[in-house]
Simulated scan of single mutants.
Amino acid sequence: MFLTAFRRRALALLTAGAVAATLAACAGETSPEKTVTVLTHDSFTLPQNLIDDFRAETGITVSFVKSGDAGQLSSVVSLSAGKPKGDAVFGIDNTFAARPIEAGALEPYLSPLAAEGAARFAVPESKNELTAVDRGDVCINVDGAWYDRENIPEPTGLDDLRDPRYRNQAVLLDPATSSPGMSFLLATIGTYKDKAPDYWRALIDNGAQVVSGWEVGYNQLFSAGEGHGSKPIVVSYASSPAATPGTSALLSGCFAQIEYIGILRGASNTAGAKKVIDWMLGPAVQRALPTSMFVYPVQEGTPLPQDWKRRAPAPEYRVTMSPKYINENREAWLKEWRDTVRR
């Protein structure tokens, strides 16, 4: 969640009043036909000036309503197909994308701006029900400063996490409750194939700790996180080191997480929702994504912050799977994970 993802840290660093101000404006000044309600995950944030500029240019106020993580968001949308709680949805990622599409909860729309990059990340075999906005590669992060202090070489790949030298050092995220946790599970399945359960078992036997979500894993237990915990290895994003000096991402064994926006079937303001999608693909929003949500933009030619090439390079290879394939196998994989971890 991309949240569902490291975006929680970005949210903590930015002004929480941005969305609240927008909601107030919607309630007090804007007629319903001039409002577009967008359901989002809890980690969504954009600079308020961009939201204000969009309103000035179009007369449309965007009301962002947070609805849990990517999985919860997908469930809310899927269960309310045809009777939506808003006009659009942002933040369903490729690990959950098939669910609302198969539920018939989304209205097809192909933005004219999608050809500038977003189309490369379209959901395979779909009818443009979802449009890619950003991507955030889920990778193992390590605290290099911790390893320097302990005079231990840093792990360099997924295989190293089974090494006794790294016993009791890793924090994993439960794939049943965490979007990046699910992405890491998929990365291991793509890397180890039918041997993935053996890999999970080896991690647990080597003392890896499993927690409910990114906030606990990164901000509380990770040694470089806000809580200065004791664990120097954690599941996060390739872009996380841009915000956390002294850390790096293991750029092998990452999963390509993509976040989408779509129009909800039965929306009261479909025309306005289309304009919001075009806006999210426009240069102003795309340029803001790296610093507001610590994700990579999808539109080609969008500049990244100067230090990202050094501190947050994108992986050259990522594990990828179609949303349909993920949806068909999710429950079986989760059961196998639970059986392995709880044995």
Rank of each mutant, 00 (worst) to 15 (best):
residue 53 D to Q: 15
residue 298 V to N: 00
residue 196 A to M: 11
residue 138 V to K: 07
residue 102 E to D: 15
residue 330 R to S: 09
residue 192 Y to Q: 09
residue 237 Y to F: 09
residue 93 D to S: 14
residue 85 K to Y: 15
residue 74 S to N: 08
residue 226 E to S: 13
residue 266 G to V: 06
residue 91 G to T: 12
residue 317 Y to M: 10
residue 35 T to I: 15
residue 158 L to W: 00
residue 240 S to C: 02
residue 214 W to H: 05
residue 46 L to K: 01
residue 304 L to W: 08
residue 105 A to E: 10
residue 4 T to G: 13
residue 147 Y to M: 05
residue 43 S to L: 05
residue 257 Q to C: 09
residue 315 P to K: 06
residue 139 C to H: 12
residue 172 L to I: 07
residue 88 A to H: 12
residue 223 S to A: 14
residue 69 D to Q: 06
residue 311 R to N: 09
residue 49 N to T: 14
residue 68 G to E: 03
residue 4 T to A: 11
residue 249 A to Q: 09
residue 73 L to K: 10
residue 246 G to H: 01
residue 179 S to H: 00
residue 76 V to F: 06
residue 83 K to N: 14
residue 258 I to N: 07
residue 138 V to T: 15
residue 243 A to W: 08
residue 263 I to W: 04
residue 116 E to V: 00
residue 160 D to L: 09
residue 27 A to H: 05
residue 205 D to E: 15
residue 216 V to P: 00
residue 156 T to I: 03
residue 100 P to R: 11
residue 81 A to W: 12
residue 50 L to D: 04
residue 81 A to V: 07
residue 11 L to E: 11
residue 4 T to P: 12
residue 292 S to N: 02
residue 294 F to R: 00
residue 242 A to P: 02
residue 114 A to G: 03
residue 136 G to V: 06
residue 274 K to A: 00
residue 211 V to A: 07
residue 329 N to H: 15
